[in-house]
Simulated assay, not measured.
Amino acid sequence: MELESLPDEVVAEIEVRDRWRRANAADGLEFLVTDIGRWPLGQTVRVAFLDGSDQLHADIAGATEQITDACNLTLDFGQNGGTFRRWTTADTVLAAEIRVSFDLPGFFSLVGTDSTDSAIGAGGGPVGGNPGQRSLNLGRFATNRPSQWEGTARHEFLHALGFHHSHQNMRGTCEGEFRWEDDIGYVPTQDPAGVFVPDAQGRRPGIYTYLAGEPNKWPRAKVDHNLRTVDAPDLVAGPFDTKSVMLYRFPSFFYKSTPSSCAPTGNGQTLSDGDKRGLDLLYPHAVDAVADRQARAGAVLASLGAGPEGVPGANGGGLAEVYRSRVEELAAAQAAGVH
């Protein structure tokens, strides 16, 4: 089983950025960091494709309609007749906020507005927030589309709109349900493909050992980044939802119990009611929801120490200015009668 994962250098850049945010966080700042990662309310977010056929592009656009039907955001694929917007690795100006490719191995996406953060991937490389870099990849879709491709596409596009993996939700049970370590006495055993398997006595590898083998070859730190629950501002948006398309379907030996409370109960294809509620929370249609977000934003801004003229106090720093822009955006959306 190969898990989705951003390139190591991109993960390192994101972790440095996120550690800075957390170090400057005040009480209640989870709303700030969530807002930093989301697109402005009602925005039209452009999508472009590097490769793949027009039919594949049309199918991907169709799969995302479940997402945009549930929130106040538009995904614009630049459709003109039977063709769709494209981008190239030689671009010097952003052709789109979300830049899709099908040519790299695996499935992954930058989260939310990281897709246009020029600091991510600034050293070069195929993935990042700059014009000639991929922000979302659906590997093999152009040549060998998986049977449940719609769910995979929705999963990655939810990342692109600000969602994280459900198994990392601090309100869930996955941290305690995962078999992180090997069975006692396990003798490391690999099959011909390099995958760790049970030993001659049936003792099983733990998650750390299993993912260190083929095809992932992850060190422990990368396992932690992708699977461990983190009580951090940028990871939780709502209650744990076993029907979410953002919850991985892991092999049974990943869990301590069967059936596991961490295992998905949805079909992995369609958005759950919880996914839709999360979308409506981040990108609300209703004016009263926008007003509530504005009130919460103002409260957090005050906690950062911003004065009446918006001058950030000692505990706010530049974060207060970032957040003020979000407050002003929400106020403008309310005045315009967002619905």
Rank of each mutant, 00 (worst) to 15 (best):
residue 283 Y to T: 06
residue 21 R to V: 03
residue 290 V to T: 15
residue 308 P to L: 07
residue 323 Y to E: 05
residue 19 R to I: 05
residue 58 A to T: 00
residue 16 V to D: 10
residue 273 D to C: 01
residue 322 V to M: 06
residue 54 D to K: 00
residue 288 D to H: 15
residue 322 V to S: 03
residue 27 D to W: 09
residue 62 G to Y: 10
residue 68 T to A: 11
residue 196 F to T: 00
residue 130 N to Q: 09
residue 330 L to M: 06
residue 331 A to V: 13
residue 23 A to W: 11
residue 169 N to R: 02
residue 301 L to P: 09
residue 109 S to T: 09
residue 321 E to H: 11
residue 67 I to C: 14
residue 300 V to T: 14
residue 157 F to N: 06
residue 45 V to P: 03
residue 138 L to Q: 00
residue 110 L to Y: 12
residue 215 P to R: 04
residue 104 L to N: 02
residue 80 N to F: 06
residue 197 V to T: 03
residue 331 A to G: 13
residue 114 D to R: 13
residue 243 K to M: 07
residue 93 V to T: 14
residue 262 C to M: 05
residue 165 H to E: 11
residue 326 R to D: 02
residue 20 W to C: 10
residue 63 A to L: 10
residue 44 T to P: 00
residue 183 D to V: 07
residue 111 V to Q: 08
residue 29 L to V: 12
residue 247 L to N: 09
residue 45 V to T: 09
residue 32 L to H: 12
residue 294 Q to T: 12
residue 42 G to T: 04
residue 40 P to S: 11
residue 171 R to D: 14
residue 177 E to N: 11
residue 15 E to A: 15
residue 317 G to L: 07
residue 208 Y to K: 09
residue 127 V to D: 06
residue 74 T to M: 13
residue 49 F to D: 08
residue 152 T to H: 04
residue 105 P to F: 08
residue 216 N to Y: 03
residue 110 L to C: 13
residue 100 V to H: 03
residue 23 A to Y: 06
residue 302 A to D: 13
residue 305 G to A: 11
residue 10 V to E: 04
residue 320 A to K: 08
residue 56 L to H: 10
residue 324 R to G: 01
residue 209 T to V: 03
residue 294 Q to G: 07
residue 55 Q to N: 10
residue 206 G to C: 00
residue 164 H to F: 13
residue 285 H to G: 15
residue 21 R to A: 12
residue 156 E to K: 09
residue 262 C to A: 14
residue 129 G to W: 08
residue 326 R to F: 04
residue 239 P to H: 06
residue 126 P to A: 15
residue 50 L to E: 14
residue 38 R to L: 11
residue 88 T to C: 02
residue 261 S to D: 13
residue 334 Q to E: 15
residue 62 G to D: 07
residue 108 F to V: 00
residue 290 V to H: 11
residue 137 N to T: 01
residue 273 D to E: 15
residue 10 V to W: 03
residue 151 G to R: 11
residue 146 P to C: 05
residue 240 F to H: 00
residue 158 L to M: 13
residue 132 G to I: 05
residue 4 E to P: 14
